[in-house]
Design a protein around this nucleic acid. Structure first.
Lengths: 184, 184
DNA sequence: CGCGACATGTAAGCCGTTACATGATTGC
DNA sequence: GCAATCATGTAACGGCTTACATGTCGCG
């Protein structure tokens, strides 16, 4: 359960409830475990059992009862040790590649349609992300250096989608030219 | 089980055995289901049961027995229908982002070390991929247009890792400058 | 009064990976 | 004879998602 380290990483910046963390994961876009919650609550129980975080019960009267988790010195130690392990390389899936593998079944117009729709889809996603970014909500906790790093973290999905858009645009150009150059 | 469509996509280009497909998935790098085989064999059974591919038993005497799968007209029809569904956007995981979220625990030298090691790791991966690409093995079946598309498919992981490398390089520069500009 | 956000959890199931099990053929 | 590759499968485990279940609070 690798999500524990991500939770500890969040808790190293501030204290959160399970609900907070679930939302952070759901909104993150760049992190694994999108919109889960089963794992978050289960992992929190385990983290607390191991003494890596303490719980502060916040009484009702000012909202629904919540459990605020705060990282302990033991938790910080575990996190620091984990930080010295090398991070894995990016892990990615491009579902469109499977479509493209079979795209010989499509005529030129159909392929153009597929790629065009995909590019449009990407553009919409990008617009949504940029919108979120603009009126975000950027976590400003931590040092100056850490704020720059948060910016890089938030930028990462944007740069990925931009790269994907460029890749598709280029591919569209390539297949359009191939079509012009030769008869099939 | 989405892997069926990927298998059908491969089979639309040529006939393969389960072993062939397993290797194609393992070597692909850009496709999901890296180095599996459980799923491939299971999916092939299902595909055959549904009449989407036929089996040709190749007798021993010229090697170990193998089952060569060939896509049927029904399989082509299913594949063509699936092709008209919109492909999902890329799905990503950048494990290093979790490290970075907690990186405020590291001093400047340690962070530099983390990023430097990561960049080195990326460079090695890139070199390996380029090596594979050079003496590949590029599937030359299909039309001229399709050959260009195969090139794009094979290039995709390369461009991704290159983009990641650039992203890290930029981040290193940013944190190095932040360090110079202010005391902490 | 109903809806949406807040809040915490549980259950079921798929998907994917690792490891196991078996056996033939080729080359050193 | 041994290791590597070809070849086909099965078993077990864990991670992740979807859906379910329950309850509070504030707002229109």
């Amino acid at each position: 359960m690798d999500i524990s380290h991500a939770i500890l990483a969040f808790l190293s910046a501030a204290s959160f409830s399970g609900y907070d963390l679930k939302k952070l994961f759901a909104e993150s876009e760049s992190l694994p475990w999108a919109g889960n919650n089963n794992q978050v609550y289960a992992a929190l129980v385990k983290i607390h059992r191991e003494g890596l975080a303490s719980i502060e019960f916040q009484q009702p009267g000012e909202g629904p009862a919540r459990k605020l988790y705060t990282i302990t010195p033991a938790g910080l130690k575990v996190l620091r040790e984990w930080l010295s392990t090398e991070p894995d390389l990016p892990h990615i899936r491009f579902p469109i590649l499977i479509h493209l593998m079979a795209s010989d079944l499509l005529d030129d117009a159909e392929l153009e349609g597929l790629l065009g729709d995909y590019e449009e889809h990407l553009r919409l996603k990008l617009a949504g992300l940029q919108e979120l970014q603009r009126r975000g909500k950027r976590p400003s906790f931590g040092s100056e250096r850490q704020r720059l790093i948060w910016q890089a973290i938030n930028d990462r999905p944007l740069t990925l989608y931009r790269a994907e858009e460029e890749w598709v645009r280029n591919l569209r150009w390539v297949v359009a030219n191939a079509h012009r150059k030769e008869k099939r």
